[in-house]
Design a protein around this nucleic acid. Structure first.
Lengths: 211, 211
DNA sequence: AGATTGCTCTCTCTAAAGAGTGACGCGGGC
DNA sequence: GCCCGCGTCACTCTTTAGAGAGAGCAATCT
């Protein structure tokens, strides 16, 4: 009979795709120094399981049902400010990652990363060392140069993306049409777009909105 | 030493995410009646490996680098008209699946499907029985009622989604602005949208375009 | 206190979008 | 042969979007 051995690095996986969890679990459990102690299929579950197990590393998908990655990062860091979180996402344009990283997530990974990169990212984060894939690092620099939208502008942008007219947007946000136009104009300028439709395309590419 | 036993169902996995391939491979190889004989990371590779191995089932991600699922389905069915292909995708709104299914793909799956569903889908397809998840079947019915866009309209829609003006669209397609407007109008009517921006939102939801 | 930033609102003016209609040639199906 | 869907083009008319230019007001930072 095998004795229960505590491996050095305990990991919780949070992803809404069973396939992805299986894949990651297989990779992680094959390693001598790490093991998966729990798996979560949505944001709420991720938080519950984190509280219960307090793992060394939480591997977290950015897009999940019930509660998205950003808010999970917030909540987990409230529970344990020293939590080590590795963000994982499919889309390299996702703007949310910057929000996560600035909130205290330790690392970021793309889902199409090769096995080795994923494992070394987990090891890095487990030692409290930040890990950022080169593609993201490059994007971070690009992003510095570009102006960021205010919260209100993001609200407007969301409605623009849904196809609402200025008048409609004004009604929904309880502002005048003129003000809505002002916001839209600011959005167009900041995103360097000529029309609202182009703005939506740009915003989507940058992951500012999720259609 | 173990003898090399041919399992009943040979499978090729095609997906650009190593994690997903690992997950699927782990699931499949655990089964007594099936095994993974090759893995592809992009569309071209999928075709090459299909030709080499002629597996019982090809599990194919719809979105891949180099060559997307639709064209892989076409090519593989040229090679072997009796090929059994199981389409897999992340997005349940994807319009492309209908194209694949009508071309001869045998089944369709969402990536967030539970393990059991994935395995039974592979078994069904391996016996040449069609498999369609209930969510997709429901969507197929919905789709019947809705008018479909012509190829030309899809061309225009793509440009609309990029934020181009009617004048710009006309120039790029070498037609007059009036004609471009006619197409846009038809698109708005068919998608039941009030503005071009809303049309883009609707089209994106239905998977008619990929931003 | 002064500067900055975000949100609000107002005004004018031009360009574009979209509704409504009609029409013509071309191809395939009945 | 005829009808129909498609792509093309043309015309009018109303609504909306977007550029430009200010201005007040609150919260925050320095």
């Amino acid at each position: 009979m095998a004795a229960i051995i505590r491996k050095e690095i305990s990991v919780i996986l949070a992803d809404d795709h069973p396939v992805v969890r299986d894949g990651l679990a297989a990779m992680v459990n094959q390693q001598a120094d790490m093991e998966v102690v729990a798996e979560a299929g949505d944001g709420d579950e991720a938080i519950t399981l984190y509280e219960r197990h307090h793992p060394d590393v939480l591997v977290l998908d950015l897009r999940m049902p019930k509660r998205d990655g950003v808010s999970v990062v917030q909540r987990v860091l409230e529970i344990n400010p020293k939590a080590r979180i590795l963000i994982m996402t499919t889309y390299d344009g996702d703007e949310d990652i910057f929000q996560c990283l600035s909130q205290g997530a330790k690392g970021y990974l793309l889902k199409d990363a090769p096995r080795q990169e994923i494992l070394s990212a987990i090891r890095a984060v487990s030692q409290d060392r930040p890990y950022t894939s080169t593609t993201v690092a490059a994007k971070a620099l690009q992003r510095m140069a570009k102006p960021s939208l205010t919260q209100r502008e993001l609200d407007v942008l969301q409605l623009v993306a849904e196809g609402r007219s200025n008048k409609d947007i004004a009604r929904r946000l309880s502002i005048t049409e003129g003000t809505a136009k002002t916001h839209v104009k600011a959005i167009l300028t900041k995103l360097d777009a000529i029309s609202r439709t182009e703005a939506v395309a740009v915003a989507h590419k940058r992951g500012l909105i999720h259609l």
